Amino acid sequence: MLLTLDLNDPRPLHEQVTGAIRRAVASGLVVPGQRLPPARELAAAIGVNANTVLRALRQLRDEGVLEFRRGRGVSVLASPDGGEVVRRMARELLEEAERYGHGPADVIEIIKELESS
């Protein structure tokens, strides 16, 4: 499972990890029923503390995306709601645009330009 984090992203690391795993599930990279690597392996692969990964996994468990099973590890329970995924991604896009000095109207204009090209 390949996850990457943006070291320039001001969001807390656990939120970035949560988003990366959520995107992997939503995109089908990881499917319902599939087990995730152990938290320590994920942490080592992306270069963060294991507790950071565990915090992200617990958040996704609370959202109903992951399931923890004693002795079996963590597996994907369900894909996130598509509409919710798009809303979350839109929020992230707006936050990123704001960091570069662009507002929602600028983002809408960029999307319209992309749509027409």
Rank of each mutant, 00 (worst) to 15 (best):
A20S: 13
A56K: 11
P104L: 06
S79M: 04
E15D: 07
R35A: 14
V65G: 02
N51W: 12
Q16C: 07
K112H: 14
R88L: 04
S79R: 15
V65M: 03
S75I: 07
L5D: 05
M89I: 13
A50K: 14
P37E: 05
V48N: 09
Q34S: 09
V76S: 05
R69G: 02
D81S: 11
E67L: 11
D106N: 12
V65E: 01
S79N: 02
D106I: 00
R70Q: 13
L66W: 06
P104S: 02
L7R: 15
V65F: 09
L7S: 13
V30S: 01
R35T: 13
A24C: 10
L60S: 05
P38L: 08
N8K: 14
E113R: 13
N8C: 07
G33W: 05
R61P: 00
P37Q: 05
L60T: 09
I110L: 15
R61S: 14
V30C: 04
H102M: 13
R40G: 15
S27I: 02
V30F: 01
R22M: 12
G103Y: 02
A26W: 01
V30R: 01
S79V: 11
T52E: 15
G83A: 07
A97V: 05
V76P: 03
D106T: 10
V86M: 04
E15H: 08
R55V: 11
E15A: 05
V30Y: 01
L54W: 10
A45K: 07
A24H: 05
I108M: 12
V30Q: 00
V48C: 07
V74R: 02
L2E: 14
E113F: 07
L5Y: 02
A44V: 05
A39M: 02
T4M: 04
E95L: 12
P80A: 02
I110Y: 04
V65T: 12
N8V: 11
I21Q: 06
T18L: 08
E84F: 00
V17W: 11
E109P: 00
P80M: 02
E67I: 10
L3M: 06
R70L: 10
R99K: 15
P104M: 04
E113P: 00
R11L: 07
A97W: 04
R23E: 10
G73C: 03
T52Q: 14
K112S: 06
I46Y: 11
D62S: 04
L93Y: 13
D9C: 11
S27W: 01
M89T: 11
L93E: 07
A90N: 13
F68G: 00
A39Q: 01
R70H: 08
V30M: 09
R23N: 11
T4N: 06
G33H: 03
N49Q: 15
P38Y: 09
G103V: 12
G101A: 08
F68A: 09
Q34F: 01
E113I: 03
V17L: 04
E96D: 11
A78G: 01
V25F: 03
H14Y: 15
E15V: 10
V65A: 02
R55Q: 10
V30W: 03
I110K: 06
R23C: 07
R22F: 14
I108G: 04
E115S: 06
G64D: 05
E95M: 08
M1I: 14
S117K: 13
L60E: 08
A43Y: 04
L29K: 07
P80V: 05
R61V: 12
E109W: 08
A45M: 09
P12E: 13
L54H: 12
